[in-house]
Design a protein around this nucleic acid. Structure first.
Lengths: 341, 341
DNA sequence: TCTATGCTTGGGAGCGCTCCCAGAAAGGGT
DNA sequence: ACCCTTTCTGGGAGCGCTCCCAAGCATAGA
């Protein structure tokens, strides 16, 4: 009675075979349109849905892609970054009717278990790895496994991977040039952790930009840990050096820096110009609104997904590095906002 | 040569049968410890991992649970809420070695495709639905499908579902009592959308609390749409009514409200006490720091996951409503912060 | 020594699907 | 009428696993 709905059963009810139903379900050709109609009617009426696992087993693909977000998740999720990334990836997977599986590594010391889960055959067709810390063993693990993957960010070691990154260096350089053009002469830097490639790239880009115009941070440099608190602390330490501008390597740290500036009784942008990186914090959240280097996170997610797809189905075979440009969004915190922006 | 690693192959190499290997892999008893060692050695050396799809097909469970976040995602992801929720759910799934699949509904009008994907047999063992809008058809769809599910929030219609919610009403009531205790006599309300049960509950809870102490909002009430911008607009409109306190139904709207207050040249908490709901915005982000009703989002996620597990394996059969208490975190924005908080 | 009991082990069946080949049916030209 | 091509349809085989039953093999008690 309550026999499970399967191809055979649908076929029985429509008076055709398993194979024919399969062809109809998959939109394959070579089915007489009359037959097709009959089968579709039965499917609609029964609410039949093909069994995903059976399909995966037989066809050797799952229609699922994994997103791996390793370590330090607790803190990272306060950042809109991952939300936006997930949004982009999800939009792209929805487009092609795939499903997104999320692998968040907790604090457990043995990343072992979850790493292995990621590369379990028959679970996902491929994974997107967000590995921005340098020397992350995860990348090596993935290289060893027989699982297509794409990295978001720039892995330091592996040149033989597909990856999608943003132009951290170029964006930071643009920030330097902008501050210089505003006439600032004592720039400071609140850098992101130097164990991340993004942190390194932003730092180098900024320093590079400065040196192009004959400026330098001298000892006006501190390293934060992405958090707002670290930005605040770094800024208050830097204030003793009397900088007239600061480039903060992330929005969140910049929010902290603004706070430190205001607590010190100084004015931004009057006394100090602030430029940040990310463009993820809603501008209206801060006062003054932050000038920042905007990175297209959602786009990165979409692109990574499409790239992974092409790796999975063999369209892309030679490692490829996609780099998205960044864009300086000028607002009030740098002191040069055009009236209507 | 490059034959696929499977139970049979591992068995061949270890000199045992498929079944024995299966028992070892699954930690089942009745395997001689010597045999077990030999098999484990082969597994370790080959890096064998069982094929997830095959396993699912044979055992009829997938080890994957789905999280469904419907509609309006674009805006919602600026909110830390979903990040925290995902964190909690992910922590709980990791604990029991399950995988989390994410279903984000985009803006496409035909939610059809993705709704159907969610209930595809053999994809996930069950789903957690975050459906807070009233009359959401998704709940009905789920009821019709043969798929275990748990709702986060309070669905208005369905009484016959498992759900996990927070005490929105009680929290809002506490906010009202607190403001009254501070001597405020002209309270205002910036409510959350009335097409969400959380919005309704918070509104009712606040009004209930006020009436208990003989106060009322009169016409000092506006409805926002969860966004910061809407909070700002609502607040600036309310200011013409000269309220001396306001309860804002979400952190994000409260941030907007603070901005409106400061833009009007008024002082918080001096002129107006502000209490918000959520406790998700890092306190240091705002000035003054927000007093808010804190909801344990991560806990809700964990609990929902565990509840779903018990529904899946049949431990829980009768619909159950779990309600988490909320807690008023007093900071400066209400004007009564204890010195050391 | 023989049988009862329990622990091990092997292999058949089957999960629901896809892939592929072969056979049936339907056309199209001579 | 014929044959040949093309379109359609059915069913075998197999994906890698779990579940279950039966057989092997000890050990122990009679």
């Amino acid at each position: 009675m309550a026999r499970r709905l399967n191809l055979e059963e649908i076929g029985r009810r429509a008076g055709v075979s398993r194979s024919t139903v399969s062809r109809v379900v998959n939109g394959e050709p070579h089915v007489r349109s009359e037959t097709k109609k009959r089968v579709e009617a039965v499917i609609a009426e029964t609410g039949y849905r093909p069994h995903a696992a059976a399909r995966s087993l037989a066809s050797n693909n799952t229609g699922v892609i994994g997103l791996v977000i390793p370590s330090a998740v607790e803190t990272l999720f306060d950042d809109p970054y991952f939300g936006r990334l997930i949004l982009g990836i999800s939009a792209a997977t929805n487009e092609v009717d795939m499903t997104l599986a999320l692998f968040l590594f907790g604090e457990e010391p043995d990343e072992g278990s979850i790493i292995y889960r990621v590369v379990t055959p028959g679970l996902v067709d491929g994974v997107i790895v967000t590995a921005t810390t340098r020397g992350d063993p995860l990348i090596d693990h993935m290289q060893g496994a027989d699982m297509p993957f794409v990295v978001i960010g720039r892995p330091d070691s592996a040149r033989s991977t597909f990856c999608v990154d943003v132009d951290n260096r170029g964006g930071a350089r643009a920030a330097a040039l902008h501050l210089a053009a505003l006439g600032r002469r004592r720039p400071a830097l609140i850098a992101a952790p130097s164990n991340t490639t993004a942190g390194v790239d932003r730092r180098n880009g900024f320093l590079e930009g400065l040196s192009e115009v004959g400026l330098s941070v001298e000892n006006r440099i501190r390293e934060g840990d992405w958090t707002q608190g670290s930005g605040r602390e770094a800024m208050s330490l830097l204030l003793t050096e009397r900088p007239d501008a600061v480039f903060v390597a992330s929005d969140r740290m910049a929010v902290g820096a603004l706070r430190a500036i205001s607590e010190a009784g100084l004015n931004c942008p009057g006394d100090i110009s602030v430029v940040s990186f990310d463009g993820l914090v809603p501008p209206d959240l801060t006062m003054p609104r932050l000038t920042s280097v905007v990175q297209p996170v959602t786009e990165v997610g979409k692109r990574a997904t499409r790239l992974l797809r092409s790796v999975i189905d063999g369209t892309s075979t030679t490692p490829e590095h996609v780099v998205f440009p960044t864009r300086l969004a000028v607002r009030e915190s740098c002191g040069s906002a055009p009236p209507g922006s």
